[in-house]
Nucleic acid binder design. Sequence first.
DNA 1: CGTCGTGTTGAGACGCATCAATGTTTGTGG
DNA 2: CCACAAACATTGATGCGTCTCAACACGACG
Lengths: 237, 237
Amino acid sequence: MSYASIAPNLPPPASGRLAALGAFAFPVSLTDCPHRVLCVRRNAEVYAQASPALYFYQVTSGAVRCSRLMSDGRRQIGEFALPGEWLGWDGSETYFYSAEAITDTTLIEYRRKDIYVRAQANAKLTQNVNDILLRRLTATQERIVLLGRKTALERVASFLQDISERLGKGASDKFALPMSRADIGDYLGLTLETVSRTLTHLQREKVIRLEDAHHVRILDPLALSDLTGEAISAAAA
Amino acid sequence: MSYASIAPNLPPPASGRLAALGAFAFPVSLTDCPHRVLCVRRNAEVYAQASPALYFYQVTSGAVRCSRLMSDGRRQIGEFALPGEWLGWDGSETYFYSAEAITDTTLIEYRRKDIYVRAQANAKLTQNVNDILLRRLTATQERIVLLGRKTALERVASFLQDISERLGKGASDKFALPMSRADIGDYLGLTLETVSRTLTHLQREKVIRLEDAHHVRILDPLALSDLTGEAISAAAA
DNA sequence: CGTCGTGTTGAGACGCATCAATGTTTGTGG
DNA sequence: CCACAAACATTGATGCGTCTCAACACGACG
């Protein structure tokens, strides 16, 4: 196993500034809370499955995969953390996942304890922590529906829609997937071949266009939305 | 659709006292917090998917399924709530799931707002709420691995082990499944036929014994554990 | 120029879903 | 107490969606 170590003093990449805050951003600023800035190389580990869960992290640039390994090598990716988003909220005593950088990544590291202590003095922060946890819970529950009941096509369509919203902030219909086909497969409970086939299928149907393997343009957002298999609230009644 | 309504004044069943607290129990007592006691008939609804999320509930006796319906009728059960356990923590504004009683069930209902207000004055309670949410998050993440990467046999074995721990508290190797095969299937991302076949398979292999469709005795706990496909922490290295 | 990592595409196998028939249990009304 | 229907569980035969195995393409890098 290649447990490459963290490289704390890697020169920060060009886009090292704090990116626009993602869905799980803290409304209350934490900039005056004790923190470290980490730079982690592609494929290096941020934290290991089952190690003591002491820190939370916020991604500044790059991308991180949080995954769990089974004893026979099967892998399930629990979440991707994109710029502005958080990781390290898994597990109470020890981390449930291990976290690895997908590309060169910079993160801000906060001690869990520090946030808890501040939360006790600050009712608003307490509420924010609860909101984050509730929101993460909801995101995880949507993934349960995806993994339990959706077809390969629906999974890939849901994935593209989700990632495009989180990366593009609705600005553009084009975006770059930082992760490999194998990562996407392990995230969606599919094989990398099925992911690849499904993407080319969506391209043949003129729903998306693959400029290259990692750059996707959504040609028909409505068609994509139809393929996700979500429950449209009004339709059920 | 049979949206039977809540029957608030159903006479409480014989085992109406508060059962032993489950995994998600509050260490801090809430008995002096405003609450209502509800009695809900088999198949009646506790709350509806997408309705305003105003309450938390703790199951006193019976069992509840929390499920999400897709527009074409596919169903995914997100969780079962057994005596002592909580439900209603899904979604921040509106409920993500709908919740229905599996058997006649009694619940204690708390206003979310009341718990939040008390949490602000009580640091210990705040910590408890966070612990509950983190623990639920971990439980949900284990289900993601199950749904994404486990075989039918591993899913059913994991399910039996989990439920037996939650129902039996380790007291006995025998327990009663309150839910139908269809419920188990929708919980594990399988069909009811596959669940049935897998259970009889486990019986032929002398891992369990089905006294009747709902009463299970675990004959060989170690064999069952082997079949769950969990990552044994030491084995991976 | 060869190698390695990654993505695509094809052929065949396999696990679980689907469809269907039968058995069992539960509840209801005569 | 029995007759009957409805709900649920089991079991079998067949089909389909995804996995597995394999070949090939392509760019990055030494």
